[in-house]
């Protein structure tokens, strides 16, 4: 990571089905492979696909913890803010699935009805505080970028806008970019487009020429990823020579995370 500070936060977002989870899993694999970093992978997509891509089993999500706490509050056993924060900190750590040099945390489905602002805000504080203990945090988000802000993190360092080559995919990331720039849906230092499943560089150039998006990298179509998806094999086990892993390595080099 050279001269970059510790605690780099990378969020990945885009339309459903464009390959956000696969790219997050590939980046996790490569960063874990460095051997000198502690990585926290956060699955903020309610579908919780990152868990299977990383080969981990989710036993408890942040939403489960939130629901448990709300039940406690309803029973009148709330305690003060510090006690609640201590309990959440304990429960969130307990919910981590730990692998070799990485930990995984699933946010779960969006919360049920009811306003529990203090619980939500405390949970976010706990996740932010936990994130500071890791060298890199990777967040697999969903299309609604404001969900990252509301449920996971107020600000990130790098926001990767993932799209396939479809017009719909590009429209969604263009909307996300506008939301970030105009409405500060999430604060970020750097934002860039990653085009996934492109046939070739010409296709990528054409898409970029017709949009206001700043291209960070592109990932080629990869039969190995298709095969892993088809057979339900964890993406983290993909070979280092897979074209998409090579592309993911380029993304991380561009971000200054790999030499």
């Amino acid at each position: 990571m050279g001269d970059r500070r510790r605690g780099e936060i990378i969020a990945v977002c885009g339309k459903g089905g464009v390959g956000k989870t696969a790219i997050t899993a590939m980046m996790t694999k490569l960063l874990v492979g460095r051997g000198d970093l502690k990585i926290l992978a956060i699955d903020a997509d309610p579908a919780v696909g990152l868990a299977s891509a990383l080969g981990v089993e989710v036993k408890k999500t942040i939403n489960d913890i939130r629901d448990d706490l709300i039940d406690t509050v309803k029973e009148g056993k709330r305690g003060d803010k510090y006690e609640m924060a201590a309990m959440l900190d304990y429960e969130v750590f307990k919910a981590l699935e730990e692998g070799s040099n990485f930990a995984f945390l699933a946010i779960g489905r969006p919360e049920s009805a009811g306003c529990y602002c203090q619980v939500n805000s405390l949970l976010k504080e706990v996740i932010e505080s936990l994130s500071k203990s890791f060298d890199v945090v990777l967040i697999d988000g969903e299309a609604g970028i404001e969900q990252i802000n509301r449920r996971v993190m107020r600000s990130v360092d790098d926001l990767l806008l993932i799209s396939d080559t479809s017009a719909k995919g590009i429209n969604v990331v263009s909307s996300i970019k506008r939301l970030v720039e105009n409405e500060k849906a999430v604060e970020c230092e750097r934002m860039g487009l990653v085009i996934n499943r492109a046939r070739n560089k010409e296709e990528v150039d054409e898409i970029v020429a017709n949009s206001s998006l700043n291209l960070l990298e592109w990932v080629p179509e990869d039969d190995m990823v298709r095969e892993y998806d088809f057979n339900g094999k964890p993406i983290i086990d993909l070979s280092d020579t897979s074209p998409s892993i090579i592309a993911a390595r380029r993304i991380l080099k561009t971000l200054g995370m790999l030499a």
Partner: peptide
């Protein structure tokens, strides 16, 4: 360590 005083747990 993680501690929850109201549950008297320390981990």
């Amino acid at each position: 360590f993680r501690a929850v005083p109201q549950r008297r747990r320390i981990w």
